[in-house]
Design a protein around this nucleic acid. Structure first.
Lengths: 164, 164
DNA sequence: CACGATTCAGTTGTGCACAACTCAATCGCG
DNA sequence: CGCGATTGAGTTGTGCACAACTGAATCGTG
């Protein structure tokens, strides 16, 4: 049976909330820390690693497309890609068809990096102590949650009450 | 039946990994966005809101203790508390017993803020589309995950292989 | 009591996330 | 074709996270 939200007092909600929002926040930072350790030897940060994963999987891509895969905008990606380029892992060039667009792709060094990164996910999975099924379930729950949160109408959140 | 990690190829892991680490990352940012909308009218960021939750629940606390509740260090909390102080929601003062320590507590304005924040968690919960049971389950999964990740021996992550 | 080790808050520097903006290239409609 | 609207990358400014550090207060052991 599902407990409807209406049966809970605001006071209790404030504590529950403290726990759900915070546990997600904490889990993300804990993951970040574990990745930081695993990626140190590759000279990548965690977001840089995500970008490399996208490029390894899809080849050359416009900044826009990378942003769609990772839900990041140019304000985050432009400097990040510049750092990857400075590290020698990525090449950028203006598209010939559309001069507004800039595409990025892994250099030879960036492609070699993939071999050295192959062992990372397994070590992370070991660190979580989860089975593959648990990992998959959690991933699906989180993906569904993200989708719902991204679809929320901003106005729903602003009114001081209005939810009656 | 649990699938052991050993039965999966590194290649497949690299894609699975892309999904689990990323889904958590995305969910956190989606949550952040939803909170941003809900907290805008209170003039708080999401981490500032977390600090206020801790202070509302525990009263006056040393910076160190706030950091333990939120798993944040002084490098993050010091400037954050300064901003909360500038906004008039928090007071800081050096402890009399231990001159090294600085305690923070909500001002009158900070305490009044709690009333205005009472409606926030319910709106967030509505936005997730989850029942209370689902929220609790997810919270527990994430808390357990954080605990395991925080306990990981850093050396386990560094060796190029060493996990045989 | 004295002095080295530890603890605590704060600072500095780097990188990510995002809002708000600029500017050029492209699109689309009259 | 011409011109306003849109799209794409990039910049700027603010705030968070964290490593590495400083400096002061406290602790512990001889």
């Amino acid at each position: 049976m599902k407990t409807t939200l209406g049966t809970v007092r605001d006071e209790d909600f404030l504590r529950l909330d403290h726990q759900i929002c915070f546990s997600l926040h904490a889990a993300t930072r804990a993951f970040n820390g574990v990745y930081r350790g695993a990626l140190k030897e590759l000279g990548l940060t965690y977001p840089q690693y995500l970008v490399m994963l996208v490029l390894w999987e899809h080849g050359e891509l416009p900044v826009k497309k990378i942003g769609e895969h990772l839900r990041l905008d140019s304000g985050t990606l432009s400097p990040l890609l510049k750092r990857l380029e400075a590290a020698g892992y990525v090449e950028r060039r203006r598209s010939a068809e559309d001069e507004r667009s800039v595409t990025a792709r892994a250099t030879d060094a960036g492609t070699e990096l993939r071999e050295r990164a192959l062992g990372v996910p397994r070590r992370i999975a070991l660190a979580t102590g989860l089975s593959l099924e648990e990992i998959r379930d959690l991933r699906e729950q989180l993906a569904a949650l993200s989708a719902r949160l991204d679809a929320v109408d901003p106005d729903l959140l602003e009114g001081t009450c209005a939810t009656d």
